Computed example of a mutant assay.
Amino acid sequence: MDSLQIFILAIVQGLTEFLPISSSAHLILTPMLFGYQDQGLGFDVAVHLGSLLAVTTFFRHELLDMAGDFFRSVIKGAPPTQNSQMVWLLILATLPIMAAGLLFFSEVEHELRSIWVIAAATILFGLLLYWYDRNGSRTRDEYSTSWRDALIIGLFQVLALIPGTSRSGITITAGMMLGLTREAASRFSFLLSIPTIVMSGSLVTLELIIHQEPVDWQAMLVGALFSFVSAYLCIRLFLHVIDRIGMLPFVIYRLLLGAVLIWIAL
């Protein structure tokens, strides 16, 4: 991998991991569009690690509060708080994709990575995002999420195994469907990305070890760094403006991207 390829793929991953436009689709499509060879599993792990560090850094204060309250409630029997409750909700919301990922990891990695699948998912779930952005009540914050809500969001997240769906896009859609504001749905989605990225990264790392693929450590380090910077800036800007601009710009982008993909496939 040359320096430009590393930079482009890392920036693409960092931006698209948290925007509702599908990072997996862009990581598949970018090498196709630029004529690059597939970047390999090792680099995918590195850029996802950069994204993971970005979201944990951004939410570091919330995560420390959640961890403290969670362990006090579990170990010391302290009364549950909003923070400790949120930890349980994130665990519950992660279980469906954990089960689905373990069962269908091979099929997702090797059988669904086609332009037609990406195009269909990009358009379909973009329209679904638009529908609930326009019609959701958007009156609740993320701390009003119930056990039922968390499970529903978790079940929606399973759809993100389909390339082109967008993990953040489908979980934000589910949140708005349940009445969360745009920012609240986004914050819950970003917090939910932490255990999800850890899980998916662990699976890919295991496959990397099993197949003993060669690793370019310098490319991985640089890729993780650029992914971290772009993802952090993306989260910060997205949460700052999303309640004002809405989801329409991302929906339009998804529809245009889907149309381009269909044109390429034809």
Rank of each mutant, 00 (worst) to 15 (best):
N135G: 01
L63E: 08
G50S: 05
L89M: 13
Q85V: 13
L257R: 05
L208Q: 13
W217K: 04
G258Q: 08
L257C: 11
G164K: 05
I245W: 12
S193M: 09
A150Y: 10
L255I: 15
H240G: 10
Q39I: 04
G201E: 09
L29C: 05
P79Q: 08
L112P: 04
R138D: 05
M1K: 12
T171K: 07
L127P: 08
Y253L: 10
A25V: 06
E207F: 08
H240M: 12
S202P: 03
L92K: 03
E107Y: 14
L33Q: 06
I245Q: 07
F43N: 03
I115K: 06
G223E: 01
T56C: 14
M66V: 11
L128E: 03
D243Q: 15
M177E: 01
L89H: 05
E107A: 15
R236D: 13
N83M: 13
D38G: 07
S146E: 10
R134Y: 13
T205C: 10
E62R: 15
Y130M: 13
F226L: 12
A185M: 11
S146R: 14
I91A: 11
V74C: 11
E142N: 08
Y130K: 12
L90I: 15
L191E: 03
E17W: 00
S146A: 10
P80L: 12
E109D: 13
L52C: 09
L239G: 03
A93W: 00
L128W: 13
Y36Q: 01
L237K: 08
T81L: 12
Y36I: 01
A99P: 03
F228D: 03
I194K: 09
A184W: 00
E207D: 15
